[in-house]
Write a protein that binds this DNA or RNA. Structure first.
Length: 462
RNA sequence: UCCCUCUUAGCUCAGUUGGCAGAGCAUCUGACUGUUAAUCAGAUUGUCGCUGGUUCGACCCCAGCAGAGGGAGCCA
């Protein structure tokens, strides 16, 4: 048998007959007739499967008894036009080799499984149609993220995974230590972190933003794209303990510029998906989220609305709606409020800007009203908050005041303050949750189903 | 962490106002000259989540525990 391999995608898109083609993949279904059998073969290269046509007698070999749904095979034969309506090409096989057989215990069947069940077999679920589509789109969109920023001259910076900042204000950190948990060194009745590996309390990053700002003060436009860790005990369909985040940071940019870039970025990613992931989107549109493609096309052609936090509060107060949580200026917007705004009032993506300073992080730039900060959240229907960002406080004295007001010791972030001390400038940035983007693009409703091997409280198997 | 719901065959799910445990799919056997998650006929498949309680009798009612899902908070 030949050693070169054609992919199913190449063959399904072939423009001509091809003799003696070799193709390898996993069996989706076997349909046996008296004289002839059909095998649907998928190799992950695309949504579709290649129809293998094989003489029934060829399958009767003893070595092929374990050929069923899930088996891995290599096939050689001629690619010819298919006489049937469902596909234009099929492979007339003359050699078939079983690389890895299956037995009756194979958990994936040629039928629909629940996502909950598939999560319990996360090592096998990439072979399911839905997850093939999810992870092909995840790969494509990761590439699109880099392409957007590289086309615009942004520098890709790898910010650290391990950090000793204990005050980023973005959530609980996972502790990183080499101390023996049974007998840690003690000082004054508390653990002596000075004796730990890094000479300080260390943890996994909850955001690359602070280091991103440092690089923006040298390269002007930068972005990060990497894993992020939150040790929050969050049990929702849109939170994970380990997720991927994209965080651009731009010198010489204000909140307005920040929103412009965020909007262009989001539009670019949706457009990229529509142009490059057509087959997988068609699958989601048909099987997972009817109307998905229409919604994505409307978003690309439609408007991103802007509304200040204060205006949002007014809209909510005037809505006449009985919300579970009361609406009051100074209180953070609840999920039900955000959903009402993005799904009903504007029926599309909206930026909510200029939040009260007491409900936002210390590094967000204080507005001239001395009450609000130059923050922005991008809310989208069905997913909610997908981007959060702000113009950063570039004034040293104001930043120190805000840190103290937030209970953060300025000396603990002296390096962060230094860039305000020397050569400071206005700058802004935001964070996009990559998985939330994928949820929006695919219509998948649980973040655990757009991450290859999800980590959530109590779950780090696989 | 809080609130609600769920847990029955390998998978998806019915079910009994407390009285012999059910279907479809999968699997196996057979039929079928080109199928499309093929179709048709037959067969196999159970710790009814776990522990205890009530009862002549519990899959069903009660309590505790475990796991899962949805919602909330935190946020991306």
């Amino acid at each position: 048998m030949s050693t070169s391999r054609s992919t199913v995608k190449e063959l399904l898109n072939s423009s001509k007959q091809q003799p003696q083609i070799r193709v390898c993949g996993w069996v989706r279904s076997v349909r046996r007739g008296k004289d002839i059998a059909f095998i649907a073969l998928n190799d992950g290269s695309c949504q579709g499967s290649l129809q293998i046509v094989v003489a029934a007698s060829l399958l009767e070999a003893p070595a092929l008894t374990a050929l069923g749904t899930g088996a891995c095979i290599a096939v050689q034969g001629n690619l010819v036009p298919s006489p049937a309506a469902e596909q234009s090409w099929e492979l007339q096989a003359d050699q078939l080799e079983l690389l890895g057989g299956v037995d009756a215990a194979y958990p994936l069947q040629k039928k629909r499984h629940s996502f909950e069940y598939l999560r319990s077999i996360a090592h096998l679920r990439p072979r399911a149609n839905t997850f093939g589509a999810v992870f092909r789109m995840r790969s494509a969109l990761a590439f699109a993220v880099h392409q957007f920023f590289q086309e615009r001259g942004f520098l890709y910076v790898h910010t650290p995974i391990i950090t000793t900042n204990d005050c980023e204000g973005a959530g609980e950190m996972f502790r990183v230590t080499t101390l023996n948990p049974a007998t840690p060194p003690m000082i004054d009745g508390r653990i002596d972190w000075a004796q730990d590996f890094f000479g300080n309390r260390a943890g996994l990053t909850v955001s690359g933003q602070l280091q991103g700002e440092l690089f923006a003060m040298a390269f002007a436009d930068i972005y990060t794209f990497g894993p992020t860790f939150r040790a929050e005990n969050s049990n929702t369909s849109r939170h994970a303990s380990e997720f991927w985040m994209i965080e651009p940071e731009m010198a010489f940019a204000d909140l307005e510029r920040n929103c412009e870039v965020a909007e262009a970025f989001f539009r670019y990613l949706v457009t990229y998906a529509l142009e490059h992931c057509r087959d997988d989107l068609a699958f989601f549109n048909e099987r997972i989220a009817p109307g998905l493609i229409d919604r994505l096309e409307q978003l690309v052609g439609g408007q991103f609305h802007r509304v200040s936090y204060s205006e949002a509060i007014r809209l909510l107060e005037q809505s006449g709606r009985a919300f579970e949580f009361p609406v009051a200026w100074g209180q953070d917007l609840q999920s039900e409020h955000e959903r009402y705004l993005t799904e009903e009032v504007f029926a599309g993506p909206i930026f909510v800007t200029d939040y009260p300073q007491q409900i936002k992080a210390f590094y967000m730039r204080r507005n001239d009203d001395n009450k609000t900060v130059a923050a922005m959240d991008l809310l989208v229907p069905r997913v909610g908050e997908i981007i959060g960002g702000s113009q950063r406080e570039e004034r040293l004295e104001v930043l120190e005041q805000r840190m103290i007001a937030h209970g953060i010791e300025p000396a603990s972030l002296d390096w962060y303050l230094d860039i305000r001390r020397w050569g400071s400038c206005p700058h802004a940035g935001f964070g996009l949750g990559f998985e939330r983007l994928l949820m929006y693009l695919t219509g998948m409703e649980n973040i655990r189903d757009v991450i290859p091997f999800p980590r959530t409280p109590g779950h780090a198997r696989f």
